[in-house]
């Protein structure tokens, strides 16, 4: 059952105090079901307390721990050593921060910058629909909800943004998705405002249907499908 792996982690590091970046190699033994966040903690505990990294919920619910392992953007709290070895067919891993924002230190990036795009699309209801005549909640049928419920599962981990071919002048897959959610939400009235954002130069035209977003999304959201549906004008 309990197998140990000899791992080599090549970690991208950056020290803001002296503005130096370098690659640091850590070798460690790890059990098969340690997660990558556990490995970082282990490095902190046993080898190098200065390595900075981020996580919060540590079970794939908050999207704090996005990172690139061998180039693939993923949640480091969800990746078990065993699975990583199987997936990448190696015990040597390059560990890099996501490319979506400037690096603060080591694996920690200035996520606030990245979040600006999500703020820009106004992830709330801009103009609420009038109440149902009989009061209480809006009535939304399960089928209506089903059309977009998958898109509401996004946790803004920015893995998709890091994977996308378009890195500039683009809102990014998750922000476009957030906009689409409210376009499909029957409670939102400000549809035209949202359309204008959606089809603007920083919106859908920047998406080249590379589908890397869908490929890497840890929540397995088919983002490309939603964006393509938006291009089709088929958000129903």
């Amino acid at each position: 059952m309990s197998q140990e792996y000899d791992l080599t982690l090549k970690v991208s590091r950056y020290n803001p105090d002296i503005r130096r970046s370098w690659i640091q190699v850590y070798r460690l033994k790890a059990g098969r079901i340690l997660r990558f966040v556990d490995l970082f903690q282990k490095i902190n505990d046993e080898q190098d307390s200065t390595l900075a990294w981020r996580s919060s919920c540590e079970h794939g619910q908050c999207g704090t721990c996005g990172i690139r392992i061998n180039g693939k953007p993923l949640l480091s709290c969800e990746l078990l050593v065993e699975d990583a070895v199987r997936l990448f067919k190696t015990q040597t891993f390059t560990v890099e921060p996501l490319t979506v924002a400037p690096v603060t230190r080591d694996l920690v990036i200035d996520m606030e910058k990245a979040y600006e795009q999500v703020h820009f699309v106004k992830p709330y209801i801009i103009q609420p629909a009038p109440e149902h005549p009989e009061g209480d909640e809006y009535r939304i049928s399960p089928r209506e909800l089903e059309a977009y419920v998958e898109a509401t599962r996004c946790i803004n981990c920015f893995c998709c943004v890091a994977a996308c071919v378009t890195q500039k002048n683009y809102l990014g897959p998750n922000a476009v998705l957030a906009n689409i959610v409210r376009l499909m939400d029957p409670r939102e009235m400000a549809k035209q405002e949202r359309m204008d954002i959606l089809y603007s130069e920083q919106g859908t035209p920047r998406c080249r249907t590379a589908r890397a977003c869908s490929f890497v999304c840890p929540k397995e959201i088919d983002i490309a499908h939603f964006i393509a549906s938006a291009k089709e004008g088929n958000l129903k």
């Binding site: 209801i125 609420p128 209480d136 909640e137 809006y138 049928s141 399960p142 209506e144 909800l145 509401t152």
Partner: peptide
Amino acid sequence: ILWLERRGMHFSRTEEGR
């Protein structure tokens, strides 16, 4: 609950849409 719902929370629904 209504406060949350009116502000866009995606509650699961019954057949009647409630």
